[in-house]
Computed example of a mutant assay.
Amino acid sequence: MVGHSFMGAAHSQAWRVAPRFFDLPLRPVMAVVCGRDRARTEAAAVRLGWAHAETDWKALLDRDDVQVVDICTPGDTHAEIAVAALEAGKHVLCEKPLANSVLEAQVMADAAERAAEQGVRAMVGFTYRRVPAISLARDLVAQGRLGRIHHVRAQYLQDWIVDPAAPLSWRLQKEKAGSGALGDIGAHIVDAAQFILGDTIHEVSGTLQTFVTERPLAAEHAGLSGTASSAGTGPVTVDDAALFLARFTGGALGTFEATRFANGRKNAIRIEINGSAGSLAFDFEDMNVLHFFDGTEDAGVAGFRRIVVTEPQHPYVDAWWPAGHGLGYEHAFTHQAVDLVRAIAADTDPTPTFADGLQVQRVLAAVEDSSASRTWHAV
C-alpha cells in the first residue's frame, strides 16, 4: 500500500478484516506499506498491521512478495504509480478520483486494458458502491421496480473547511488534488448515481465556487485537520462547492451538489431517484436504511417503505452480524477488498474498472468546462 493517512488507515482495516469474515479464494497478506518519511511510515506499519515499510514506491515493483499495489496517495501521483505497477505485473487498487485530468485517466485506463490481456487487474476505489443499501438500490432499479427513471437528486455535504482559519492542505491545491469538492466528494455521487441507474451522464451544466481564496499555510505534513503555521497564507486553487445539472443517456435528469461548506453536515450523502413506477431515497447519515416507494400500490395504503438493509439476503450482509445489527463506514472498504480478491482469483476484471473511473473523470472535466463557459457541455 502506498500512503498511510486517512485512506491508508481505512484500506488497512479492510485488508486485515476481509479474510477473517469472508470465505476468500486467496488470502491477502499485508506485506509492505510505503510513505515518504521513514519514521512515520515505520510507525504506520506497526499501527496498521503491515510487515515492512518502504520510502520509495518504486521499490515495491521489484518485490516478489507484492502482487497487489493499493494506491492511497494524492491524485497527482496516481497515474505514475498505477501505470508502473501494472506494467510490472502488479494488480492495482487506486483511490478515487482516478486522476487529476482526463488525459492522465486515459493513460491509466489504456494501461489497465493492456494489463488485463496479461491477467493483471485494476480497480478504482468508489467505495460507496459497496454500502449494502446502495447495492440494493441498484438491484431494485435493475429489476425494473422504479420503471423508467425520470429524476436523480444527489448531494454530498461536508463542513470541514467552513472556518476561514482552517489551514491550507494538499486537498485545496489544484496541482495535487486536481479539483476541490467536485473531485474529492462530487466524484462519489457521480459514480453512485451512474452505478445505481446502470446508466451514464452525457451532458452537464455546472458552476464552481471558491468561498475562501486564501488560507493559513499548514504545518508540514498536516492533513485534513492539520494545524496552521505562522508562515503566512497561501492561495486556495480549487473549488469549495460544485453544483451541476446532468442529462443521462437513458433520458433521466440529474441535479448534483458537492460542498465542503454545508455547516453542520459532516459526511452527508443523499440520493433520491424517481421513476414512473416508484422512488428510492438514501441518506448516508442513516446508512443501513433504504427508503422505497412502490407506485403500483393502492393509493390508500401507498407510502415510502423503510427497509433496514441488514438481512442475510442483502448484498454482503450475510458475512457479518445478525439482522438489525448495522454496519458502518469501514465495512464498505472491506467489501471492496473482498470483490477485488475474488475478481483476481476468478481472472475477471473487478468493478469499477479504470474505464469507469475515466468516465467519471470526463464528467468532472465537463463540469469544470461548463462552469468556465457558463454553457452546457457534452461528456
Rank of each mutant, 00 (worst) to 15 (best):
E175G: 05
F304M: 12
A219S: 10
A39D: 11
A192Y: 08
N100P: 02
A116G: 04
T259E: 01
G8M: 01
A365W: 05
T259N: 01
T41Y: 05
I269Y: 14
R20Q: 13
A345E: 11
P97Q: 14
Q336Y: 13
A9D: 11
P132C: 00
H221M: 06
V379R: 13
D65S: 00
A241S: 15
A18R: 06
E80T: 13
D159Q: 05
V124W: 03
A378V: 12
P164W: 01
P132K: 01
D283C: 01
G125C: 13
D240C: 09
L327A: 08
E368R: 13
D286Q: 11
A222H: 12
V2K: 00
D298E: 15
Y156A: 12
A355L: 06
A115E: 00
V308Y: 06
L136N: 08
F22L: 08
F261Y: 14
H11T: 06
G144V: 07
G183I: 03
A252Q: 09
N263W: 04
V2R: 00
T255A: 11
G125E: 12
A246I: 02
R145F: 07
A9R: 08
E214K: 10
A59L: 14
K176V: 11
T255C: 08
D199R: 13
V124M: 08
L245K: 13
D347H: 11
R270M: 09
V2I: 15
I189S: 03
H335V: 10
